[in-house]
């Protein structure tokens, strides 16, 4: 029977939530196709994680344990995935679109000469398979249809809810031969992010500026005064930090800080998914953007379609007036 293979990720001894999201997608597709869900857990000391996954929808869980799987490396994990593919002959392989998924999945797709689609937010499984994803940094949606097998797909973390059911599977040990010479890209160490200067996670109000600000001096001139008037902090999108306009500590998003202030004001930020994951759980979101179709308006509570250089200074003035500081 054709199978769907979920490539699970283990973090701190536990299966990541995004892997259970893959199980949700896999179960949906399996039901429509009459196929079977299987999973791979690769690591060292990962048997408890594999047992847990087997009880919670992962089906037959291949457990690849090896000293050289203690840390992720594309070569070692690639060997584990290939061993699982040999055992399961999957028609579909599912990865999360995470630093592991986007590093490994395309290599596997090329090795299998399969169809590849990345960073999907949904799949239509009845009838032909259609993968839904965003293109142009969130500005347009697209439907992708594979015409070859196997299909290798990565899914955006958070794209669906994690599988919740109790469904008994089993753990099958998987032998993988890996030698140190196989590791052409070798793990050395992980350096965790150090918070320096601003800790945005504690701010009640954040005023963030994006590439729409156009120049570094616009931050002290336009964004900081509004943040000051509101007694809040200043934040930024990634291109602002990339350009060296502000230090990394100001960056909000998947590779910056995750924030949940009472009020988040985004000015000149389009709303790419990597920015949204860092701020969409804010209590109240105001977006100011001159493009009425900017994706940021989908997560905002209040929106202003207009020029930030007109709106933000006027708002600063009005806030100061309201505080009697005009």
């Amino acid at each position: 029977m054709a199978s769907i293979l979920v490539i699970a990720e283990v973090q701190n001894g536990k299966v990541r939530e995004s892997s259970y999201e893959l199980v949700s997608f896999a179960r949906r597709i399996a039901k429509a196709q009459g196929s079977e869900v299987r999973s791979l857990v690769a690591g060292k000391g990962a048997s408890a994680a594999a047992e847990e996954l087997a009880k919670k929808g992962g089906g037959e869980v291949y457990l690849a344990e090896h000293d050289l799987l203690a840390h992720y490396s594309v070569d070692a994990f690639g060997k584990a995935v290939r061993a699982a593919v040999a055992a399961a002959s999957p028609g579909i392989l599912l990865f999360s679109h995470t630093p592991i998924g986007w590093d490994l999945a395309p290599r596997i797709a090329a090795a299998l000469d399969g169809a590849f689609v990345s960073d999907c937010f949904n799949v239509e499984e009845s009838g032909k398979l259609v993968f839904l994803r965003r293109v142009f940094n969130g500005k347009l949606d697209a439907r992708f249809v594979p015409s070859a097998s196997p299909v290798v797909a990565t899914f955006q973390p958070g794209a669906t809810s994690p599988f919740e059911g109790a469904l008994d599977g089993k753990v099958t040990p998987l032998q993988v031969a890996i030698s140190p010479q196989d590791l052409r890209a070798k793990f050395i160490e992980v350096r965790t992010a150090q918070k320096q200067g601003v800790d945005l996670s504690k701010a009640e109000i954040i005023v963030s500026g994006g590439r729409g600000l156009g120049a570094p001096e616009k931050f002290p001139e336009v964004i900081q005064p509004l943040a000051d008037a509101l007694g809040g902090a200043m934040g930024a999108s990634r291109p602002v930090v990339d350009a060296g306009w502000l230090p990394h500590a100001y960056q909000v998003g998947s590779s910056g800080q995750t924030v949940t202030p009472k009020l988040y004001i985004a000015a000149g930020i389009s709303g790419a998914i990597q920015h949204l994951v860092g701020m969409k759980n804010s209590n109240f979101i105001v977006a100011i953007n001159k493009d009425a179709d900017a994706p940021i308006f989908e997560v905002a509570n209040l929106g202003v379609v207009g020029d930030l250089f007109e709106i933000v200074p006027a708002l600063t003035k009005a806030v100061n007036q309201a505080k009697g500081k005009a």
Partner: peptide
């Protein structure tokens, strides 16, 4: 091996009050 069937503006959800 994979083809774009269609691209389209994202469907508008509830969205912000403008």
């Amino acid at each position: 091996k994979i083809k774009i069937e269609k691209i389209y503006p994202p469907p508008k959800g509830k969205g912000a009050e403008i």
